[in-house]
Amino acid sequence: MIFRKFILILLCMSPAISAATVPEFTIEIHDHLFFPSTLVVPADTKVKLIIINKDPTPEEFESYELNREKVIMGGARAVIFIGPLKSGDYPFFGEFNPKTAQGVIRAQH
């Protein structure tokens, strides 16, 4: 039983296997706002988020609900994997501009 769990963990650690069929979604940052501000993703599926910061200033993508946090430099792009998520809304925000940079990931079937 322990051996099977160990093999499962090793398999989970193989990015080549797990990244092969992961759907991709893009979020852009303009003028300290997220576009789209509501992104619908499939529930119960691992998802690859590509975040493109079109502002010249840095931003930090952060979400307590998604348990994610990443600095994205001005004019740069970042990749974040999320999920599999249960159906529901998962708010995120830009920590460097929290008043304007707000968004939601909506996981649904």
Binding site: P15, S18, E69
Partner: peptide
């Protein structure tokens, strides 16, 4: 663990 989950090296679960 969170860093490795974020880059897809580890897989998230419920």
């Amino acid at each position: 663990a969170r860093q490795l989950l974020q880059i897809g090296i580890l897989d998230s679960a419920t």
